[in-house]
Amino acid sequence: MKKLLIVFLITCNCFSQQASLFSPELFKNLPNVRDFSMSKNKSEIYFTIESYCKTYSFIACIKRTGKKWGKPKAVSFSGEFKDLEPFLSPDGLKLFFASNRNATSTDVKKDIDIWYVQRNSLNDGWSSPINVGDIINTNKNEFYPSVTNKGDLFFTAEYPNSIGKEDIYVSRFINNTYTKPVPLSTAINSDKYEFNAYVSPDEKIIVFTSYGREDDLGRGDLYISRKDSEGNWLPAKNLGDKINSKKLDYCPFIDINANVLYFTSNRTNVPNRLKSKQNFKEIIHTINSLPNGLSRIYSTFLNKK
């Protein structure tokens, strides 16, 4: 665990190394693992555990006592419906997530909506899930929430006014009420796919996934944008091959204080031919060795500039 604590404390001004698996021992023997949200005091990690065919998922949490992380546990409000993409508000008192649960019945909804739970203090348990409301949730998919210090909600949606198939939207939180969502500018959204955006608490940095751009390295890459002096998003840039792979790279989260980027990838090092003939036990070991195509959490230092 010493290496994990060092990651929390060191900052770097460049991507000086390849992205690497984040604490694989924490997620050992789990199927697909995706999404990542960590409390400001680094005592809680929330993430999604997804079935092998990705038909079902639930939200889990790992808590740290002193220098030791506990075992993953399902959160109190998850375990029946398909829940995914947890995001802790900056103060840690709300946890937003996406779900196919229904606000008006016990039936499963055909699309995905955004919900949240809340607590009075960091030591309290979570409330029952609350739907963010029909100003945001529609009969189309809304997913991957990210919340700023002001309470503004950034998310992905398939609205009729989308530039591409999926775009990134923001709903401002004014007088404790969400406003009508608006799409981000073409510095972020394009006629391709844009989804899964993390926005920093001060709303100065955004990292998201786009698929289908000319500089896309594979099935979807992570891009970054920062705001200029007038508060406008600068044209997003691909984070490069030290982070992105030929597979899907998605679900970003930044530990702002430690300057560390976390994200999900289903990359693999399993070849289509082994270097030499292996027996049954050796082949299974090779197939099960990460990265092997299962979704896992990766991390790397984030460029401040």
Score class of each variant (00 low, 15 high):
Ser105Asp: 10
Val33His: 01
Glu142Val: 02
Ser23Arg: 06
Leu26Val: 00
Ile45Leu: 03
Ile49Ser: 12
Ile49Cys: 09
Ser78Pro: 06
Glu80Lys: 14
Phe77Tyr: 13
Lys73Pro: 01
Tyr46Arg: 12
Val33Ile: 03
Glu142Met: 04
Asn120Gly: 15
Leu93Phe: 03
Val132Gln: 02
Arg34Ile: 10
Asn32Met: 13
Pro72Val: 03
Phe143Val: 10
Ile49Gln: 15
Cys12Phe: 14
Asp113Arg: 02
Tyr46Pro: 06
Phe27His: 01
Phe81Pro: 02
Thr65Trp: 01
Ile59Phe: 08
Tyr56His: 09
Ala60Gln: 13
Gly79Tyr: 04
Ser57Asp: 07
Leu88Thr: 06
Asn100Asp: 15
Phe154Thr: 07
Val33Glu: 02
Trp69Val: 00
Ser37Thr: 14
Tyr46Glu: 11
Phe154Ile: 06
Thr148Gln: 10
Trp115Cys: 04
Val132Trp: 00
Thr156Ala: 15
Asn139Pro: 07
Ser146Asn: 12
Lys40Cys: 00
Ile59Val: 13
Ile112Val: 15
Thr106Pro: 01
Ser57Phe: 09
Phe96Trp: 06
Phe77Met: 08
Ile114Lys: 15
Ala19Leu: 10
Ser39Cys: 08
Met38Asp: 00
Ser127Val: 05
Ser51Gly: 09
Ala103Ser: 06
Val108His: 01
Leu21Arg: 04
Leu122Thr: 05
Pro24Met: 01
Asp124Tyr: 02
Glu142Cys: 07
Asn32Ala: 12
Leu84Ser: 07
Pro90Lys: 10
Val75Asp: 00
Lys63Glu: 13
Thr11Phe: 13
Asn131Ser: 15
Leu30Cys: 12
Thr104Asp: 12
Trp115Asn: 06
Arg101His: 02
Asn141Glu: 07
Thr106Cys: 07
Phe36Leu: 10
Asp113Ser: 11
Lys40Ser: 12
Val108Thr: 05
Asn149Val: 12
Gly70Trp: 13
Ile114His: 14
Gly92Ser: 07
Glu25His: 13
Ala60Thr: 03
Tyr52Leu: 13
Thr148Leu: 12
Arg64Asp: 07
Asn32Arg: 09
Val147His: 02
Leu153Cys: 08
Lys42Phe: 10
Asn120Trp: 00
Asn13Trp: 11
Ala74Ile: 14
Thr104Val: 13
Phe155Arg: 08
Leu95Ile: 04
Asn120Tyr: 01
Phe47Arg: 09
Asn139Lys: 11
Asp91Ser: 04
Thr11Lys: 15
Thr65Gly: 04
Leu122Cys: 05
Arg64Asn: 10
Glu50Ala: 13
Phe58Ile: 03
Lys71Gly: 03
Gln17Phe: 05
Thr55Val: 11
Thr48His: 02
Ser121Lys: 06
Arg64Lys: 15
Arg64Leu: 06
Ser39Asn: 07
Asn100Ile: 09
Asn29Leu: 12
Ile135Val: 15
Glu44Ser: 15
Met38Ala: 02
Phe143Pro: 00
Glu50Cys: 13
Asp83Gln: 03
Glu25Phe: 08
Tyr56Asn: 08
Glu80Gly: 03
Ala103Thr: 01
Ser121Val: 02
Glu85Thr: 13
Asn29Ile: 04
Gly133Phe: 03
Tyr116Phe: 15
Met38Arg: 00
Gly70Glu: 14
Phe27Ser: 01
Phe58Met: 10
Glu80Phe: 09
Arg64Ile: 05
Asp83Lys: 01
Leu21Ile: 09
Glu85Ala: 14
